[in-house]
Design a protein around this nucleic acid. Sequence first.
DNA 1: ACTATATATGCTCTAGTTGAGCATAATTAC
DNA 2: GTAATTATGCTCAACTAGAGCATATATAGT
Lengths: 337, 337
Amino acid sequence: MRKTPAPSLATNVAIALNAVIAVVDGDRPKVLCVRAPSGGPGQEAGRELALPYGPFDPERHRTFEIGVREWVERQTHVTLGYVEQLYTFGDKGREAPAAALAGGAGERVVSVGYLALAPGLAELHAEDALWADWYSFFPWEDWRGGEPAILRELIIPGLEGWAGAADSKEQKKARQARVNLAFGLDGFGWEEERTLDRYELMYEADLVVEALRDRGDEKTQTPGTGVAMISDHRRILATAIGRLRGKLKYRPVIFEMTAPAFTLLQLQRSAETIVGFKFHKQNFRRSVEKSGFVEATGEMTGETGGRPAALFRVDRDGLKDRAAAGLAIPRLRRPGD
Amino acid sequence: MRKTPAPSLATNVAIALNAVIAVVDGDRPKVLCVRAPSGGPGQEAGRELALPYGPFDPERHRTFEIGVREWVERQTHVTLGYVEQLYTFGDKGREAPAAALAGGAGERVVSVGYLALAPGLAELHAEDALWADWYSFFPWEDWRGGEPAILRELIIPGLEGWAGAADSKEQKKARQARVNLAFGLDGFGWEEERTLDRYELMYEADLVVEALRDRGDEKTQTPGTGVAMISDHRRILATAIGRLRGKLKYRPVIFEMTAPAFTLLQLQRSAETIVGFKFHKQNFRRSVEKSGFVEATGEMTGETGGRPAALFRVDRDGLKDRAAAGLAIPRLRRPGD
DNA sequence: ACTATATATGCTCTAGTTGAGCATAATTAC
DNA sequence: GTAATTATGCTCAACTAGAGCATATATAGT
């Protein structure tokens, strides 16, 4: 028997706060990005995209969330609504690109990722900031027009090749099972919130540029599998999208991203934009109308291109009463099912 | 227009890894605790309980998870199964007690909390480590014997008093709404996974000792509201319990905590122990049997005190096939509903 | 004015799920 | 034996979710 020693805590770690600031712009989901101050060696392609990030200053910030809000609002002039902590990323290998990014030496950089939702595109005041469509980073995640061609043509074959290239029979089966689960193959359904699983598999299978880059590989292209980001920011973004997609189902967060008044179809399009596939319209109305989240304003809009639609607004009281619930998000129906 | 400056990252932060190691022992949920090396000033009561924690050593640990596994296994000789990151806690105010705990000076300590599940009580080799019943920290969370008396007698009145003591009418309503939602009052149901919301409200309302202690208050007792822990460890534990309770519903994590063979009632008791209330037995069987998670071993056990029960084991293939699903956890039925 | 087309909105039908309870079976404790 | 205890099978009613039919009210084009 020995006593548990009081551990001493190491100090040579820096903390960065990363924010995924998500908005819906019509039928495009967007995320605030910055152009990073030029990539590492072999990256003359210019300035890679990064999530906005800031230092965590323990002197000035009582909490992480205060820190995030503070520098986001100062640097981008975007006012954040809903904010939640996502995950803390501390893997080694992050540090090389991240340290370059920070201009610092080779100390370990840990980043705490945050997801923030805003009600619409804010005007940007920094010249190297932009709103990017998040499906440009994850083209395989957008099923609104049916199954993305890139999946059948390139990604699934690539993943099956990777699974088949494993050493043992056991390993092959294990890899294939992961692929099936994440990508909804072989009897599994496509679960929209598994964005991180899918990205990680693609990374392991060398289907995204970051995998090659992080190894210092020659090849710097993986056509069709989306735009790369600096460091592990695309992984952070994948985490954020998955979290947001899941959250829609059990918290009324969609209303953090809507205009003050909207038609039910606009609300549906917002949800579909995030979730990445289309819903049955009448069922969606039914569930929203009985949810208590919205109330009719009594006004109509004629800008629909068809019969005018009733305008709704958020029912603040209803929202409070049902803060424990979310929208009824159906499952993705594949034509063949 | 100005360029986003490359932020410099501060370094005077230490990272601790905290682990909530949870097991189910019959009908008691347990968590590994250590006796902290004597509390702060005014805490002569001896050694407060703490979650086991260790330093994150950026030199030696490629990832946080590796770090957690390493020091847990080294210090406690408990082998961890399932491990997941919970949340990163960085609030100011943590640091005073946490720094004392670390024996260090007044630097900011950030801790990354982890939830780990193990299949049973491991023998402990450190004399100041122990398995504690987690409901000793949260007596109001255990509804298996009906609504805990302490809730109606003490906690709810205390919270309503706190709500009523707010400055403005608005504030009062807002506070009361939070209480209703978290504690399932006024038409809301009790949601077992809202453990953190409940703990936070009780902290704000001065119903747990930590609230008084963190302010340096004279009073050091809040009878009936559970055992205190050092620093914000009870909050970390509340986070872990909520996460685990929620996770049961959509991932088959319960099987990380079960013996190799079990009866369906034993499985049910394990789930009830975690969730904190009892289920309808026949419905639970029905859902488990058709879930594909388990298969009959063909053997029976006579140790039930009644008719012998069939023994089941985890169906590893079924688990893989259904890794996307969890147990069907019903809602808490209150007698009056 | 008439027609095609687009969106809005109401309603129904079916299959499946969930909550609850009845009934019977096979043990042990006294 | 009888009571108590646990196991297990089955049914019923309420509710939910997926799908589609039908009708209403616009705009655009001829």
